[in-house]
Design a binder for these strands. Structure first.
Lengths: 74, 74
DNA sequence: TAAAAATGCAATAAATATATTACATATGCA
DNA sequence: TGCATATGTAATATATTTATTGCATTTTTA
């Protein structure tokens, strides 16, 4: 069995800390609000460009925002 | 003018250091050799998952392998 | 409390990453 | 030199991300 991993992120938390809206983030990084919403809901694999944009916006490293962990591990 | 950035990577160098083939890398991370080749030729925006897989394989941080820099800056 | 803004969600379209296949050239090695 | 392996490239197919639109519900704020 090959190891499956999930990409997870804590954008929801980071956004709450900053009190930013999804719309605001979307505008800053030039994507739609849908994209931000999908990202936050943690159920897909964004492009590296998008990950970099998010990291730049929050002034963090990609790995401080996104994790790649064994499926099932919470 | 909105700032455009390029995603670049040094996989070619890292691979040379390890003396690995494109085929070998492709097999390790479950993509095709084409994908590895395209990646190395630095002209596109991979998925975050692929970036994580490469980083794991080389045991490095994503940002040690991929950079996101202003277009034109070499 | 009413209006405005923010969020969740869904369907479909558009864009682009990745796979597949194939072939030509280059490079290393017997 | 000749064979095996590695690499560059291209065309087409498939998969997945992202955009677009729209609407319902929740939360904020005047």
């Amino acid at each position: 069995m090959k190891k499956e991993r999930d990409i997870l992120n804590n954008i929801y938390i980071l956004r709450a800390e900053k009190r930013w809206t999804q719309k605001y983030i979307a505008e800053q990084i030039n994507v739609t609000r849908q994209t931000v919403h999908s990202l936050e809901s943690n159920k897909y694999n964004p492009s590296l460009k998008l990950a970099f944009e998010i990291a730049l916006l929050f002034n963090k490293k990609i790995e401080e925002i996104f994790t790649y962990e064994n499926k099932g591990d919470s």
